[in-house]
Amino acid sequence: MAFQLVLPDSKSVSQAPSPLAYAVDRTFFYAAAAGALAIILLVIYILWEIGGQALPAIGRSGASVLVNTQWDVQNSSFGILPQIWGTLYSSLMALLIGGFIGVSIAIFLTQDFLPHSLATVFRTLIEMLAAIPSVVFGLWGIFVVIPFVRPAADWLHDAAGFIPFFSTSLSGPGMLPAVIVLSIMILPTVAAISQDAIGLVPYKIKEAAYGLGATRWEAILKVILPTASGGISSALVLGFGRALGETMALAMLIGNANQISLSLFSPATTLAALLASNFPEAGAIERQALMYAALVLLAITLVVNVAGTLILLWTSRKMAKA
């Protein structure tokens, strides 16, 4: 197999790789290909396992699980509408708060509001936030956030209880503490991707804005943010995706109550919290229903994440052309 070049002069030390080198090269290639294939097979295997385990539940109750509101193990009646509602509602609220703060911080750190060295310190602080484990946030939420927001929540309920958001009182765990902690958890994701997106805005565009006599905020709001809007939207979508899949902090803070309410102060539940709290003790039938819930969660996050990734890809291509 080793091909040899025959040369008239033999002064050169050049020679073909040894048979061993060829064998190593080939083995190495196949090992690397196997690694890449492993990722593809893993995804297929995940879908196959979760889908396969959920199949009996899908066959038994079909789409009715999606609209049923009861999770009744005794009667084997399983519905996950409250969980779907809770997942979407908590994530959306967290996106509103965490997204706003995250984008603001991205502006704060990229538009010379701080001297360079301080900006680095602040950026590190925000990045550290991403490193705090979810369960630690849960613990902090129980012992810091809930006692802290309770007086305000009670006051709001008394004064403005007619507004649906404040229609119940906060008795401990509930939607609001969960949303607050969730906002904090997605904030670093949003801030980091938004900073990258703003960093991609060509300097000449900023220069052009200032050259026209724009103030700092006119340049930011009317030129820089619109130019970076693609990247910022993908930051928001990916932050939303992160919120959807978040489990532990929510399981610890949201109260795990099977109900649908607009109120920020009432306990609620999410798909991930349902899995976390019911899976370990579930019997065979309930486990199939839980697998169904897992599949729904997978589908929702998949759609959101694919959308976010595509937006990111699309905008970076657009930026590369510009």
Binding site: A2, L5, L7, P8, S14, Q15, A16
Partner: peptide
Amino acid sequence: HFHGQEIYDKGVDPVVVRRH
């Protein structure tokens, strides 16, 4: 052709060509 040998022949290893 490199010293009379066609370097784009099927059996030729580009790695060896580059060593020479």
